[in-house]
């Protein structure tokens, strides 16, 4: 009877998982230096004495893991932001959260000059925190400026975000231009959304954020269902609308900031993934959000694989590949929402 049953959901999740495993395998084996299936499996299970350990453990695998985490974070954050703002065009990038987090990180890089190249634990662990400060500042600004008649105005939410985002991006660019040449290069590559510098420390530095924030979001998923009703209905049902909005906004900002700190500003994941998830599993957030996590992971792993290999040995920024898909999709959504 129900179009979106539990069985269907499990089927979709398993399919997504299968695709992720396939994408991971292809990313591991294919590249400037191709590996056979046997070689990949042997290296993964040889525990540190295989021929290709360095290639897989130092280069390909950490990058895939980061891509997966970033995709998950951005996909889930996008779904939450769209739910909170009741606006299907909301996305961390469009709302200026990426840009805010980016600005704070650029400022951090600027004052930490010349030390970025090294694998300094302090700077790596501190980056998500700086990202969070910037991301939070952006979210708080956007949230406060979007209040109209005592409620969150979803049109304003988007417009304020776009305006603030451009401002933050301009400031970031200004600061980047003041950097010394090595840092400038690092910061520019980073700011367009690249996983070039991926390493295990990055994964470890953002993992706690995921372990802390994702469960809260999954736990609050049923509130996002209620947010699809009008504000007066939601209030009548006894939801503390303002409080729940703030909690959800903080959680998604935290996720986005952590992602931005390791991958720079990768846009549009949070826009595309929730729409795709909705069309597959329906509008129930308890199913949709886990699916967003999976689809985000898949999207960024695949996009990063394309970015690495399309013009090999030269590399395109992962963010660029996703934008190439994201921009037309955004315009399509814009037109469809008007109709």
């Amino acid at each position: 009877m129900l179009k979106y049953s539990q069985e269907r959901f499990v089927g979709i999740m398993l399919t997504a998982l299968g695709l992720i495993v396939a994408a991971m395998y292809i990313s591991l084996s294919y590249g400037v230096f191709d590996l056979t299936f046997a070689e990949v499996v042997k290296t993964l299970f040889s525990q540190g004495n295989g021929e290709y350990d360095v290639l897989i453990y130092q280069f390909r695998l950490p990058r895939i893991v980061i891509a997966g985490l970033v995709g998950t974070g951005l996909g889930v954050a996008g779904a939450v932001l769209q739910g909170v703002s009741r606006n299907g065009l909301a996305d961390p990038g469009i709302l200026g959260i990426n840009a805010g987090a980016g600005l704070a990180i650029v400022v951090f890089m600027f004052f930490y000059q010349g030390k970025l190249a090294g694998s300094d634990w302090f700077s790596i662990l501190a980056m998500p925190f700086f990202g969070l400060i910037g991301g939070l500042a952006a979210s708080i600004f956007v949230y406060l400026l979007s209040w109209k008649n005592g409620r969150l105005d979803s049109q304003r939410f988007l417009l304020t975000g776009i305006a603030l985002g451009s401002g933050f991006a301009a400031l970031s660019l200004y600061i980047t231009l003041k950097m010394d040449p090595t840092d400038f290069h690092t910061a520019t590559v980073w700011s367009v959304g690249s996983l070039f510098h991926a390493n295990w420390q990055y994964s470890i530095s953002i993992l706690p954020w995921f372990l802390f924030l994702l469960p809260i979001i999954f736990w609050k998923a049923h509130i996002l269902d209620l947010f699809q009703l009008e504000e007066s209905s939601v209030k009548s049902l006894g939801v503390s609308v303002g409080r729940e909005q703030v909690i959800l906004l903080l959680c998604s900002t935290g996720l986005v900031s952590a992602c931005v700190s390791v991958s720079g500003s990768i846009g549009f994941v949070g826009l595309i993934v929730p729409h795709l998830a909705k069309s597959l599993t329906g509008i129930r957030h308890q199913q949709m959000i886990p699916l967003c996590a999976m689809l985000g992971m898949l999207l960024v792993i695949v996009a990063d694989f394309i970015a690495k290999n399309i013009f090999a040995p030269a590399e395109v920024a992962t963010g660029t590949i996703i934008s190439l898909i994201g921009v037309p999709y955004f315009i399509y959504l814009l037109f469809r929402s008007k109709a």
């Binding site: 699809q228 009703l229 009008e230 209905s233 009548s236």
Partner: peptide, 13 residues
């Protein structure tokens, strides 16, 4: 509880 005038919800619900 209050039932607002012309409440709206998602069509897919």
């Amino acid at each position: 509880t209050l039932l607002p005038q012309n409440p709206v919800g998602p069509n897919e619900l």
